[in-house]
Design a protein around this nucleic acid. Structure first.
Lengths: 338, 338
DNA sequence: GTGAAAGCGCTAACAC
DNA sequence: GTGTTAGCGCTTTCAC
């Protein structure tokens, strides 16, 4: 913990009052530049800086924001955090990080620890669990603005930065059809929430447009556990024998590749594959993986920019606004015609 | 920011004293369970929780630690952070995250913002830049313990969790030799610091043991910029024509794969490749990538456990101690004999 | 331009 | 088991 030297001791050491010393550390204080110089010099010498908690107690501002994400598994979140951290630091803010492991309960626990002044704002990608997000009201009642990115809740009225997932899914599915697929399976972690739902809509739209049947058996709703994913996908492929798979998250595509290997199915010959992913080495996989690549870094930047707009009063809080950032469609070997 | 309701108002609203209310929020306080119940209920109703800055000011404890890492690029750091966050949360701690972009200057800036009580401890993987780490003394003089993981500084006396890199490098290089390689290049981001240095020693040891010449031209010291990496590696391969490459960090291996593709060199036939990496899909690459896989998640856990040992007084601070966690050697297609 | 003094909201002796 | 009280270290009027 902090040095045991305080503003009072510094003052004593210099024969000044603590108010004068305090002034040396604030901008625009009416203090003699020379005095200020002397104080700062001595402070540096003693390794002193004003106690954060004492200042914040007075100032009622934390200069800290929180990121809450469901997992740390993939490049998408790494990139997003990178963007968030950058903008935050450029604004003199600190960043707390929390992982929910896709649990709404943990999410609620975390939120509860944030409303005591710990943070000035929150950036979150929803856990995707549950439909009761009452706990987020706590943020509002404590005037802590919230901005979503990627995974948002429809029952919460706030800004949200996400990809143009509906269209991307539609295009991706259309592409699979164009490559000859007729029995396309859709894999989601949660079909009923946010990204799982919207991405499925694009998938359905493309099927309907191509007059292909919508088969519930082909729409898999699996869990966040890799082993369960593997089993579910294996079952799906064995029982339904799809000729293509559209995975709404990267992890499900990876499991699919492993299952295909085990079942000795060749991609793309026996099974075509495309997925949402920010993997930067998709082209190095065997076969190269077709992906819908979301602008993760940009999402992080935009979400944080929005948050600061609210924090600085340039924008009102609590307004539902969805900002779509375009994803990139990269069609490669895994979804090619033969 | 925090609600304007305070412990005093809550007390007034309930006809109790503020100390009683305060007690309701601390564990193990000698308070009537019923009274506590009533207080917590009212608090929930009013959306009140004790002001963090006031508590921390009193307690002189922030229940927050900082993670400082050089980059966010790869799975290694994601996994490590995951482990850190887990242990921290289990101990009721919050985690601040900072990225230095491999800059010692940024690292120093960050450290300076941490010594005012903001954090109780720091977990860091060094930027790898510079040899003057005086700024870390600030932590010590403010009694903020520091634990390194992966990339540490030799001039700083503190606990450090790292891989058994010397032996792993030695084994990896030996393996390349066993696979028929005779002209093995070593790629590092910084040959003179920490991991770059130690991993090179293992490489050299294996070469010497096999009576292969140590050729400085084959030991590349490149930058943290991907484009520069690419150019440097391309030059190296074109000019030196190595028959194998040992990359001390993942990114350099990825650049190598791309360069090989451009130069139409086949891996492993024309060029064998092995690298340090935590990629979980190394087996899916074409060819499957041989890796030295560090226990990133476990490193995060161990580093944080060490930090809490120090914070809780179970262990003294400022003791140089290096804890080695074994990496896994996964030899696959990219380094096979033919 | 500097100092004295009153608190920010909470905690922890210490009384009762 | 609860209340009283004295600060934690800093900021900020208000005097001078």
């Amino acid at each position: 913990m902090a040095n045991n030297i305080t503003i009072v001791k510094l003052a004593a050491a210099l024969g000044l009052s603590k108010s004068t010393v305090s002034r040396a550390f604030r901008e625009g204080s009416d203090i003699n530049p020379k005095t200020k110089e002397i104080i700062l010099q001595k402070a540096a010498e003693l390794g002193f800086s004003p106690n954060l908690y004492a200042s914040n107690l007075r100032g009622n501002k934390s200069y800290t924001i929180a990121i809450i994400i469901p997992e740390f598994g993939n490049k998408f979140f790494s990139q997003a955090i990178k963007g968030i951290e950058l903008v935050a630091r450029n604004n003199g803010y600190h960043v707390l990080i929390y992982v929910t492991d896709h649990s709404a309960e943990k999410e609620a626990d975390i939120i509860r620890t944030l409303v005591n002044g710990r943070v000035d704002g929150v950036i979150m990608s929803g856990s995707g669990e549950g439909d009761n997000h009452e706990y987020l009201k706590l943020l509002k009642s404590n005037k802590v603005p919230l901005v979503f990115f990627d995974r948002y809740y429809e029952d919460v009225s706030t800004a949200c930065i996400t990809g143009n997932d509906l269209d991307s899914s539609y295009q991706a599915t259309k592409h699979l059809i164009a490559s000859g697929a007729r029995k396309i399976a859709y894999l989601a972690v949660n079909k009923d929430v946010s990204i799982g739902k919207i991405r499925m809509e694009g998938y359905k739209k493309a099927l309907q447009e191509a007059a292909l049947p919508l088969n519930e058996q082909l729409m898999l709703d699996t869990s966040n556990d890799v082993l369960v994913n593997y089993k579910d996908i294996k079952n799906l492929i064995e029982n339904q024998k799809p000729d293509a798979i559209f995975a709404s998250v990267e992890r499900l595509a990876m499991s699919t590749i492993r299952v295909a290997k085990e079942l000795q199915l060749l991609i793309p010959k026996d099974l075509k594959l495309i997925c949402f992913s920010c993997l930067d080495i998709a082209d190095m996989l065997q076969p190269s993986l077709s992906v819908v690549k979301q602008p993760a870094y940009e999402m992080g930047i935009e979400a944080t920019t929005q948050l600061f707009d609210i924090l600085c009063g340039r924008k009102a809080d609590g307004i539902r606004e969805i900002i779509f950032l375009d994803s990139e469609l990269i069609f490669q070997g895994s979804s090619s015609r033969a």
